[in-house]
């Protein structure tokens, strides 16, 4: 699974993206656990960050799989 980081999360993780392999489909809580293992510094941002799966915002029911493109979306500021 490819996970993308945007805006200040690039600085937090030091990366624009990371490839991770899930042993089984993850719900948002499981995916966050996995991400926080890799990047503990994300914890400070978790409450404000939304997840997307294949270019759509994820919901509590979303299941993330290995072929998905996932992004961490911090609060936006376009326009």
């Amino acid at each position: 699974m490819r996970v993308l980081f945007f805006a200040h999360l690039k600085d937090v993780t030091g990366q624009e993206s990371v490839n991770i392999i899930l042993p089984f489909p993850h719900d948002p809580g499981q995916l966050w656990e996995r991400l926080l293992e890799l990047y503990p510094a994300l914890a400070a941002h978790q409450s404000k960050v939304r997840l997307s799966r294949n270019w759509e915002y994820a919901t509590a029911e979303t299941l993330f799989q290995n072929e998905d493109e996932v992004a961490l979306i911090p609060p936006v500021s376009g326009g």
Binding site: A7, S77, G78
Partner: peptide
């Protein structure tokens, strides 16, 4: 549209 753009569209002032 402009209101919701600023809430939901993944674009950031960087």
């Amino acid at each position: 549209f402009m209101d919701r753009l600023k809430l939901d569209v993944p674009i950031w002032k960087r």
